[in-house]
């Protein structure tokens, strides 16, 4: 069994990482604090179940993610129906998509707030999968273990989450005329280059 002080030290070491993860799943300061407190208390009460030498972060993420589901009032689904795997209704215009993805810095500079807003519209499973992969750098297999679902379902959540993010961003970019603005910006830059020589 792990030493109690060591357990507290490990929690202290990762507290900011865990808190940021929770915040990105629940997107509310006070809810994030409640979930964090509840997760730490659950972990503390269950510390005898943690096996020394095993992956502490993954063990904690499992507890935290379950708390996030409760906080978001969502039911964790361990698999998706075959119909739901059809992503055609999330499809985006490939030409527009290319115009967006070819300059990600421009997008975050002009639509950063909308990107964060779009994150809030994803499901808990989609957000958790995306954050655990892209930010916490877990593998598909590890994410599947943390979220307690098959690897294929994790990949589906990732794919759908990304597609929905893009679609929401694209709607914003089109509705606000940002793409036209960007095209003008690019055109202006090209004209300047031509003038210079």
């Amino acid at each position: 069994m792990i030493n109690d002080y060591e357990f507290v030290n490990m929690l202290e070491e990762y507290r900011n990482e865990f808190f940021r993860y929770i915040y990105r799943i629940v997107w509310n300061d006070s809810v994030a604090e409640d979930v964090f407190s509840s997760a730490v208390q659950t972990a503390w009460q269950s510390r005898e179940k943690f096996k020394p030498g095993s992956n502490f972060r993954a063990w904690m993420y499992r507890i935290i993610t379950n708390k996030c589901y409760v906080a978001n009032r969502e039911i964790k689904r361990n698999s998706l129906d075959v119909d739901e795997l059809d992503e055609s209704h999330f499809a985006v215009d490939p030409d527009l998509e290319k115009r967006m993805t070819d300059d990600p810095e421009w997008i975050t500079e002009h639509a950063g707030d909308e990107l964060l807003e779009a994150m809030k519209q994803l499901s808990t499973a989609e957000r958790s999968s995306l954050i655990l992969l892209a930010i916490e750098r877990y593998s598909y297999k590890e994410i599947a273990e943390i979220l307690e679902m098959p690897v294929g379902t994790v990949m589906t959540h990732l794919s759908r989450g990304r597609t929905r993010l893009r679609r929401l961003l694209m709607d914003h970019v089109l509705n606000t005329g940002l793409i036209d603005l960007k095209n003008k910006h690019v055109q202006k830059h090209i004209n300047q280059q031509l003038k210079q020589g």
């Binding site: 808190f19 950063g112 990107l115 964060l116």
Partner: peptide, 9 residues
């Protein structure tokens, strides 16, 4: 970009 958005504990 998303990584930079979260607050510390």
């Amino acid at each position: 970009f998303i990584n930079d958005s979260g607050p510390d504990c």
